[in-house]
């Protein structure tokens, strides 16, 4: 059968249809991503929280930072909002995967694209691209807003060196978090579970391991994904004992890679 006559009279040739190449799967996932509101809400929230809170916190602290009793660097404040914006990156990464499991749509997806690794790869690529761009733009706008108040107190920072790095570093960090959450989402298949586990790991556990005494505690603290990944998103880290920006980010990427491989193996084997 090369062509079939449908009720409507339309004839579809089998030959003119491409196989589900990676490009096709990428297009399909892009249609999925842009046709639900949650994508846009989380991206808007990333921007508003990231840029807005940075501006707000700089406005509130500029005068103290300029004073002699300041014991923190303005560099720790100029991307402050990204600490909160990372929550929305987690939400986006989770929703992209777990709503499909929640509704059962994942079966439709895997029936249409039996090569499940392509689905994982396409989702990952899109979330990385979106969060990378939105994270970077957010950091720049936050800088513009925050630096305005720092400038007024004479402690403004020029857009170069570590400050510039923290701008695209914010994009990289958010992209990494989105990817991390995608992997966890494929492993857990549950929205609330995925979001709470990743947030607990990044925000709560990451700080609690600080309490473990000795060199062991120091290393565990350094290696926690949030602690390893976040220094790249700020010119000066609040915690001086963490890895420096690029070393930490490399560690973070390694952790993401391990999780992604685990997710790939499990998704390929598990019944959908």
């Amino acid at each position: 059968m090369t062509a079939t006559l449908m009720e409507s009279g339309a004839v579809v040739e089998r030959a003119d249809v491409a196989r589900p190449t990676f490009a096709a799967v990428l297009r399909a996932e892009w249609v999925k991503l842009r046709t639900v509101r949650s994508t846009w809400w989380t991206l808007v929230a990333t921007f508003v929280l990231g840029a807005g809170l940075t501006t707000l916190i700089c406005w509130g602290n500029a005068d103290w930072l300029a004073s002699p009793e300041a014991d923190e660097s303005p560099g720790s404040f100029i991307t402050w909002g990204m600490m909160i914006a990372q929550i929305t990156a987690v939400v986006l990464g989770a929703l992209v995967v777990t709503t499909e499991y929640g509704t059962g749509m994942i079966r439709t997806t895997f029936a249409a694209v039996p090569a499940r690794g392509r689905v994982l790869a396409a989702k990952s690529l899109l979330v990385v691209a979106l969060l990378g761009v939105v994270g970077t733009v957010t950091a720049f706008v936050g800088y513009a807003g925050g630096n305005y108040f720092l400038d007024r107190e004479g402690i403004g920072m020029s857009m170069s060196g570590d400050v510039l790095r923290s701008m695209y570093g914010s994009g990289l960090y958010l992209a990494g978090i989105g990817l991390f959450t995608i992997a966890v989402g494929f492993l857990l298949r549950h929205t609330a579970g995925t979001i709470s586990i990743v947030l607990a790991l990044m925000l709560i556990l990451g700080n609690m391991v600080n309490l473990i005494p000795g060199a062991f505690g120091e290393w565990v603290t350094k290696l926690m994904p949030g602690n390893a990944g976040s220094p790249i998103s700020t010119p000066v880290s609040f915690n001086p004992n963490l890895f420096d920006a690029w070393t930490g980010f490399a560690v973070f990427c390694l952790e993401i890679a391990v999780l992604l491989v685990a997710a790939y193996v499990v998704v390929k084997r598990r019944d959908a």
Binding site: V17, A18, R19, P20, T21, A24, V25, R27, A28, E29, V31, K32, T35, T108, T109, A112, V113
Partner: peptide, 8 residues
């Protein structure tokens, strides 16, 4: 649409 896109 997304389903159609996935299989070209």
């Amino acid at each position: 649409r997304w389903l159609a896109a996935s299989n070209g």
